[in-house]
């Protein structure tokens, strides 16, 4: 767990170091906006026990959130991963405990006290029309499919960890995940994949998810393993029953 804390802390810290100029001013408590103040209230009720006062982190419980940015906070809270029910290898997606509005307050608070990556307002993730899904597809296959699979259905990582299915994730959540690199996911910051590239990528993911499978039911899109199962459970079983009928006494 200590590694985990250290890890998250450094993500933020070094990120800030490498992105000079964007998060220049360190706002003080007094300078909190109204949203951030609401966020602080929520934080002090629900997050403080693990992440500590002023989000400085608590050893063996939760990492410091200084510098993780609002994208990370909103992603974790909106997907229900935070607050965690218990300490485990990987936080799971579950029904969120806070409304999106409250999550935004929390994000504003963390952003205000430590800075960090944010989803740029210039990107239109509501309406993905006009995005280049072919480019998005290429980027998806180079950067994402190795963990999340061609079908976007997710896959296994080492020792019980996993890359989650992208089906339940909203466009904004996917964007935030790329920005913040939650848990074991590598960071794909805006300097590596530009906001436009990210939008293309999200458009591709949404496109193939919404596109009804060509050529019948996709058997869960797990690849050849379910196809093999199907040939035995459907094909061979049906034909074995047929042989019993054909050779049966009548």
């Amino acid at each position: 767990m200590a590694r985990f804390i250290a890890a998250l802390a450094f993500v933020g810290a070094t990120y800030t170091a490498f992105s000079p100029g964007i998060y220049a001013d360190e706002p003080t408590d007094a300078a909190l906006t109204l949203d951030a103040q609401k966020g602080k209230e929520l934080f002090d009720q629900s997050c403080i026990s693990c992440h500590g006062a002023n989000a400085q982190g608590v050893d063996d419980r939760g990492p410091s959130l200084i510098g993780v940015g609002s994208a990370a906070v909103e992603f974790q809270v909106n997907t229900g991963r935070m607050p965690m029910v218990r300490q485990e290898a990987q936080a799971e997606r579950k029904p969120p405990m806070f409304t999106p509005e409250e999550a935004a307050f929390l994000g504003a608070y963390i952003q205000a006290i430590g800075g960090g990556p944010e989803v740029p307002e210039s990107v239109d993730l509501e309406n993905l029309e006009g995005a280049d899904i072919a480019t998005g597809g290429t980027l998806f296959r180079v950067n994402c499919s190795s963990c999340h699979a061609f079908s976007t259905g997710g896959g296994a990582l080492s020792s019980g960890k996993y890359a989650p299915s992208l089906y339940p994730a909203s466009s904004v959540e996917i964007y935030q995940a790329m920005l913040s690199g939650p848990q074991n996911m590598p960071v794909f910051a805006d300097n590596q994949l530009t906001p436009d590239q990210k939008r293309d990528l999200i458009a591709y993911i949404k496109y193939i998810q919404d596109d009804q499978a060509q050529g019948g039911w996709d058997l869960g899109a797990f690849g050849p393993s379910t196809e093999g199962l199907a040939i035995f459970l459907v094909g061979i079983v049906a034909l074995a029953i047929a042989t019993l009928w054909i050779a049966g006494k009548s």
């Binding site: 296959r141 499919s145 193939i208 060509q214 199907a230 040939i231």
Partner: peptide, 30 residues
């Protein structure tokens, strides 16, 4: 089966590139 169950949706996999791979890569069952 061919009409009702999709098999080997090659369009999801994209062209072969040495750097491209998917989680859950498997051959056919045999």
């Amino acid at each position: 089966m061919a009409g009702l169950f999709q098999i080997n949706p090659i369009w999801l996999f994209g062209p072969y590139k040495a750097e491209v791979v998917s989680a859950g890569s498997q051959p056919d069952f045999y």
